[in-house]
């Protein structure tokens, strides 16, 4: 608490003139600035494709084709996102947002909890070994995870069905209509399972950065471990948690395509449980003979705009309560 007080006191008033500090900091960040200009800002003119019927002009290059050879088409490229039947459109938005909300909550609660618990283990060796193992799923692509899931859920040879039969129960056709009610849980589980190790790292590094004297003082004051966690660890993790939250909210209209498409194997019977915006776009555009850059660009732009709105809203709400932790 005292730290924040100090900083507010120390914060200097806005100066109108450039100080030596400003110049030094500017130079320090210059290489990164150049990187952002070259790899992010220069290509940004590509957003125009979303509003044009892009048509290449032979031998003229991209810019000429885009500016002179392609007609403006307003929002035509966005239509295909809504041209499916009502059922699919609703399922698509429901799944995208619904799963994301669950993933955001679990993606914070579980890693934070595990990061705190792991710092309490007596055996540091055990902690290290377990942490390494928890990280392993992150290295496997969703395609490989898809095979792994299939080994469990295959109708005939799958492990789960063999166990069910062994217990005298009826086998389930997991990838067909029978399996539909289970898939939301499977998907949530897989997402947590694959990402928990990765997400834990940020929180573990933050816990590691906490000033040890705070705990020492708390111990002298007779605080229990539970109280220490509640009054020291979590408040000090708060800025990181909030930033992770805000950034996740900005991607609420995006989805991890591999998770939804590869593990369900795009099985039609499960469509209702896994179709998200990205899956829908992929199913419409992949391998298409008509050039699809305009459509893909439109879909991406829509995700960006909605993401931007939710992010700015979330940021505004956060900064109302805690200005220090907010994004801007």
């Amino acid at each position: 608490m005292s730290q924040t007080d100090k900083t507010t006191v120390l914060q200097p008033k806005k100066k109108s003139k450039l100080t030596l500090d400003d110049i030094q900091l500017f130079l320090l960040s210059l290489p990164t600035t150049i990187w952002f200009i070259m790899f992010c800002y220069v290509p940004m003119f590509g957003i125009l494709i979303a509003f044009k019927k892009y048509k290449v002009a032979p031998g003229k290059g991209f810019l000429w084709s885009l500016v002179y050879n392609s007609k403006w088409c307003g929002l035509d490229n966005f239509k295909f996102l809504f041209s499916s039947n009502m059922k699919t459109t609703i399922a698509m938005f429901r799944n995208t947002i619904g799963y994301n909300i669950i993933f955001i909550v679990l993606g914070i609660v579980i890693p934070v909890a595990l990061a705190i618990i792991i710092s309490h283990l007596y055996s540091k060796k055990l902690a290290k070994v377990c942490q390494t193992m928890i990280f392993l799923p992150h290295f496997l692509s969703w395609v490989i995870v898809g095979y792994f899931v299939y080994a469990f859920l295959a109708t005939k040879e799958g492990l789960v069905n063999n166990i069910l039969i062994g217990m005298g129960l009826d086998p389930v056709k997991w990838y067909q209509k029978d399996g539909l009610p289970y898939w939301p849980y499977i998907l949530v589980f897989l997402n947590v399972w694959k990402n928990v190790g990765y997400n834990m790292i940020v929180y573990m590094a933050s816990i590691n950065g906490i000033d040890g004297s705070l705990y020492e003082a708390a111990v002298i004051d007779g605080a229990s471990k539970h109280q220490q966690t509640k009054y020291i660890t979590i408040p000090l993790l708060k800025p990181v948690i909030i930033i992770m939250f805000i950034m996740a909210v900005g991607r609420i209209f995006n989805s991890d395509f591999g998770l939804f498409y590869r593990t369900t194997r795009n099985s039609a019977a499960l469509y209702d449980a896994f179709v998200t915006l990205d899956v829908y776009v992929y199913n419409s555009l992949f391998n298409s003979t008509i050039p699809t850059y305009g459509y893909a660009s439109a879909a991406g732009f829509m995700q960006s705009v909605f993401g931007c709105i939710t992010l700015v809203t979330a940021n505004a709400i956060v900064s109302k309560f805690d200005k220090e932790s907010a994004f801007f």
């Binding site: 295909f80 041209s83 795009n266 039609a268 469509y271 199913n283 555009l285």
Partner: peptide, 27 residues
């Protein structure tokens, strides 16, 4: 040239995508 009906074609592709694998494997 499917350009004039591109939107419908993309939607059709999406619908087929939901059915064709089960159909062509006899499932």
């Amino acid at each position: 040239n499917i350009e004039p009906v591109a939107d419908q074609c993309l939607a059709m592709k999406n619908v087929w995508e939901q059915y064709i694998y089960e159909m062509q494997t006899g499932t």
